[in-house]
Design a protein around this nucleic acid. Structure first.
Length: 150
RNA sequence: CAGGUCGGCCAGGUGAUCGCUGGUCAACCGUGAAAACGGUUCAUCAGAGGAAAGUCUGCACUCCACAGAGCGCAGCGCCGGCGAACAGCCGGGGCAGUGUAAACUGCCGGAACGGGCCACAGAAACAAACAGCCUUGCCUGCCGCCUUGCGCGACAGGCAGGUGAUGGUGAAAAGGCGGCGUAAGAGACCACCGGCGCGGGCAGCAAUGUCCGCGGCCAGGCAACCCCCGUUGGGAGCAAGGCCAAGCAGGGAUCAAAGAACCGCCCGCCGGAGUUGGGCGACCAACCACCGGCGAGCGGAUCGAGGAUGCGGCUCGCAUCCACCCUCGCAAGAGAGACAGUCCCGGGUAGGCUGCACGAGGCGCCGGGCAACCUGCGUCCUAGAUAGAUGAUCACCCACGCGGCGGCGAGCUGGCUCGUCCAGCCCCGUCCCCGCCGGACAGAAUGCGGCUUAUAGGCCGGCCUGGGGU
RNA sequence: GGCGAGGUAGCUCAAUGGCGGAGCAGUGGCAUCAUAAUCCAUCGGUUGUGAGUUCAAGUCUCACCCUCGCCA
């Protein structure tokens, strides 16, 4: 499959952030927060050129749209080094879990301050726990086996 | 060897797998006549710092304004050099301070242009007065003496004088100490010391240092208070600025009616303040050169459904006024509201591209210079993200720290055959091995020169102090 | 990223370089059967932090920290 951590498949617009944060459901953990919103077809129409250019090239994704991610760290996390580090580790956690996640969602992942002291395996387990609670795993994959295998 | 101080350098390294961003080549797909553009995949190359930080400064660059100058505001201020420029750097000077020393820190135009301040205390905060001192002169009172005189001497008071030595204070009181002098005193005078000014010699490019001579003690502190002198600066900032596709006005233009705020001069009126007069008083009347407002006339300038003024440095924004209607008020006046219709053009934000990385560039060498720095030559191209790219996992090595076994040195204890001996202990130092932990501050956002702040440690060199050896 | 405004008692704010104050709040008292209000008294400050100028700094100068606002 294609690598989905590319920038073209992330959430970048301010309007997307506003929409997901207003209408999405949030799931909290001491290390991070996850906000998910199911992408509607009408809302995706006005969305960027990259989607329209990819969809005819890849006919398998025509029926079910992409799942787009965004990773954020506010000023309460720390200084610039700690914020960048939290974003990179969360993005890596998203990339490792990406194969077993349902399509057609817009997800925002927000880092919290204890994320600085946590190890990467703790971040991974926290992220998979939140994915279970949000019921974002695909039906054919077993969520308990997938995170350690990848 | 130990401690200190100054300057410079590094900012863990190597390798593997999966990922991220940008450039280049190739293949495929889409649009297109083609050029080209966009996307995917593979290969290859590159990918944060000494402070990238704080945004304190100086520039480049862009837009706006602009004839020039001035006003206002802001920065700087010993001397010389460097530099594109700077509140920067280098070298030097003076004053004050820390340290045994090496060295380090802070400050640097003008207080005899002017204004202001110096709380409390103190007589007084910069310029004289007050208290005090003196009894020099005159007058009065009183006492003593004898030479009985406008006599001499002592005391008290008043007037005229002389003073700035004294006055517990305070951060600061019109040089210090000694003498001479005087009615009392005083740089009034003298010797020494200190400080100031002027002139000259020597050293230095200069700041300045040093020496000599003369003058006269006149002149408190604060300019990181205003100010004066010299010098520099037009304002804003890459979210500057430019271009593009779609779509849209609350934006612009047109149609309507001819006058309006503004400035100058002059006249009149209203209110306030002031002066004069009257009234027991509230107040009244007159004058009015001051302040605020209104109205008419004349002249000027602007605009024309919009215009004018003021403020914030002038772009631009905000406020007010006039022009239309309504309401309130005795009046001058004040307050609130409305701004329609038609037609056309198409700005900006959000989005994309650009600005955007070959430059006051880096590195090395020769030369000049004490140094900062500069000339020349050679070589290299070395990040360009935009919810913002460097992450995850693993192996080995290098520092640092902790623990353990062992060796050596020093120390302690014990023994005798008293020696450069043996045995034990091990808080100390060093070396080796093993295990664990484990990498400071911190992330480019237009670029560059500085400053300031944060920083685990390591390496190199100069100098100083102490100890030991030769 | 760039620009510019501020930090004073628990809160909101004052304070010509010269002993840091007001209102509310808190505590104690008066009063009331009791509470509130009123009245009286009282407590509470490293003036954000650190240097410097000055005899003296909340104020003047510099550096740092924190908070808030704006962007054709």
């Amino acid at each position: 499959m294609i690598k989905w951590v590319n920038r073209k498949f992330r959430l970048t617009r301010t309007t997307d952030f506003k929409r997901v944060r207003q209408h999405g459901r949030s799931y909290a953990h001491p290390l991070l927060v996850l906000i998910a919103l199911r992408a509607e077809a009408g809302q995706r129409d006005d969305q960027p050129v990259a989607l329209a250019a990819v969809q005819p090239a890849d006919p398998t994704t025509q029926s079910l749209p992409l799942t787009r991610f965004a990773v954020t760290a506010g000023r309460s996390v720390g200084n610039a080094v700690q914020r960048n580090r939290a974003r990179r580790r969360l993005r890596e956690a998203v990339r490792l879990q990406l194969r077993s996640i349902k399509s057609g969602w817009d997800v925002i992942v927000i880092a919290r301050r204890p994320c600085n002291e946590a190890s990467f395996s703790e971040i991974q387990s926290a992220f998979s726990l939140l994915l279970q609670r949000a019921k974002l795993y695909q039906a054919n994959c077993f969520p308990n086996e997938q995170p350690p295998s990848s």
